[in-house]
Design a binder for these strands. Structure first.
Lengths: 233, 233
DNA sequence: ACCTGAACACCGTTCAAGT
DNA sequence: ACCTGAACACCGTTCAAGT
């Protein structure tokens, strides 16, 4: 609130650095990326840009619209593999590429999966995948094949990226998991060494610190096997 | 703010209906279920119970802790199938049961998948599933099989339940999807009748109004086939 | 066209004070 | 032990008014 701060301009005077829609989206992207969606607010973003909150509303609309734009920015950055490679490696690369990009910006990826995209510009990946599935011979069950693949891949990634609860420390979670009652949870207890901090629901580290690469590849390969088998039949 | 309201009690006077931890969790569950997480606040919950906000903090801790309890309540309600049925039908029933319960309380299910559970009491399903996978013969790749199944099922459901953006109406989305540029999205355009309002990313209805039952069954069956095949090999 | 400044109606959380 | 009442530090959003 100091008069000399860049946020204190006179009425109607324009910002030294022009506040464009693009600049706002970029700054919002960076803020959410660094601090998470909880650490993001319209007011903090405005302060960051040296501008009053109302200015944001003029440029991008309300909070929901802005989050939609951030989401869109993220989806556009997902890399598509060479379309001329064979189906199997293409599909595996798409899946891995999607997940890799989610790990680059976990907070934004979570946001983007949770609400449906508000714009149809993010349909490059779906379109390409549908094309490949049609080539493979799917027709009546095209929707199911597409949904299974898309839902499993996007879903796995978002479940994998679910953050730890803030209220409890990792050590406490570890202690709880390692000390689980063997009569109540016999199978977990019997395989604790294999599962600890690796199996979903039994992790205590940050998801980005302990990526489940092998499990993801396992899932995708099982799905691709299954889809091919169903076409041969 | 009327004096005669049940919310206006004198200092230190107890509520006519005692405010227990259980009552708070139950009321929170109902509020989120009906109005969604966005329509829920500590203050509105307190008002609903005829009590001051600070009372909630005394009984259940902060907002995060309360959401954890609501989550836990939901997970406990997931029905487990008869453990003595054969592996294949057991697994299918678990998956369907999980999803069915998510559809009963979509707002809570979304909440429960987004953050990791804060309590280890919700491990009945994981434990049972691990037991079945061990029976099937998984050992070194037990984690991967478990994660693939769990991640795909929970993930599919949460992606399926992603709500429409509030800012845009269903009609507008439908129009946009049906009018997609055929040169930019040739494969979607060519199969629009099969995909419209059924394929992920191409829906405009509410998720609960257009459940993707077939796609979910397709996914689960492909996964179960794949797991069994990997064990025979 | 673009931005300010203030206002409105909310939040979550804490804490001394009451019974 | 349980709850009030008020306070603190925030929110998102709107809108008349300025340049």
């Amino acid at each position: 609130m100091v008069k000399s701060s860049s946020a204190a301009r006179r009425r109607g005077v324009r910002a030294d650095v022009p506040v464009t829609k693009e600049a706002i989206v970029e700054a919002a992207f960076r803020l959410i990326d660094e601090r998470g969606l909880e650490g993001f607010s319209m007011r903090s973003l405005a302060a960051e840009l040296g501008v009053f909150p109302a200015t944001l509303y003029w440029h991008v609309g309300d909070r929901g619209a802005l989050l939609g734009l951030v989401e869109y920015e993220w989806i556009k950055q997902v890399r598509m593999p060479d379309p001329d490679t064979d189906w199997r490696t293409w599909a595996l690369e798409v899946a891995r590429g999607y997940r890799a990009h989610a790990f680059r910006h976990p907070n934004i990826a979570r946001l983007a999966t949770l609400e449906r995209p508000q714009n149809t510009g993010s349909l490059r990946l779906p379109d390409a995948l549908i094309g490949k599935l049609v080539e493979l011979g799917f027709d009546d069950d095209l929707v199911d094949a597409f949904n299974a693949l898309m839902g499993a891949i996007r879903g796995f990634v978002i479940v994998e990226l679910a953050p730890r609860p803030e209220s409890i420390g990792p050590d406490e979670i570890e202690a709880e998991i390692r000390g689980l009652d063997a009569t109540e949870y016999p199978n977990i207890a019997a395989n604790v060494d294999r599962l600890a901090d690796r199996a979903l629901s039994l992790r205590w580290s940050n998801p980005t610190d302990r990526p489940l690469d092998d499990s993801f590849d396992f899932l995708v390969n099982v799905l691709l096997d299954g889809l091919e088998a169903r076409r041969r039949a």
